[in-house]
Amino acid sequence: MTASSKIRGKVFVLGDNIDTDQIIPAEYLNLVPTIPEEYEKLGSYALIGLPDGQGRFVPEGEAKTPYSIVLAGRNFGCGSSREHAPIALGAAGGKAVVAESYARIFFRNCVATGELYPVESPVRLVDEFQTGDEAEIDLDENAITNLRSGTRFELNALGDARPVIDAGGLFAYARETGMIPHSA
C-alpha cells in the first residue's frame, strides 16, 4: 500500500443530490480526460455547474482547488455515467468526498479511476462543517475531525473499494493482484 491513510485539508460543503451536471456541465464533455492538457482543464471546471451563489470550488482563472475534501449530503454524483465527474474533482486537487450516500455509477467511477476516495458518513455532516474549515480524514480509523471545532465524526469503512483506490484505480489494482498481466 502506497497511499497514506490520512487526508488533511479544507472542506467545501454542499447539499443533497449534487448531480454530475453540476460537477462538470455537459458543455465541457468534449474534453478527453486521457489527454493531459484536457485533464487539467476538466479540473479547472470542477463544480462549475453549481447554482450561482454557492461559491467556487476552483477559484476563477485557476486550475487547482484550495479544498481537498468535498462534504455533501445524500445521493452525491447522481445523473450521468460520465467519468469526467470524479476526474474533474480529482484533477482539481480533490482527494476525498464525504457524503451520506452516493449514486452508484459515481461511486464506481471513483474507485475505477482511483481519483478520489468516496467515503460514506452514517450521519449528516453538512451542518457540522462550513466551507473553509480545516479537517482531517483518517481512513484507517474511519473518522473525520473538524479541526476548527475539534469534533470527530465516524465514517463508514470503504471496504473492498479502499485497496483499489490505494493502488491507483482498477487497472493498477488488477495488475497488483494478478487479474491482468503486468506489462502492457
Partner: peptide
C-alpha cells in the same frame, strides 16, 4: 447498465 470509461476500457481488453 451504465459504466464509466475505465470499466469500459477494461471490458475492451478483457
Amino acid at each position: 447498465t451504465g459504466i464509466g470509461n475505465t470499466d469500459a476500457a477494461f471490458i475492451l481488453g478483457t
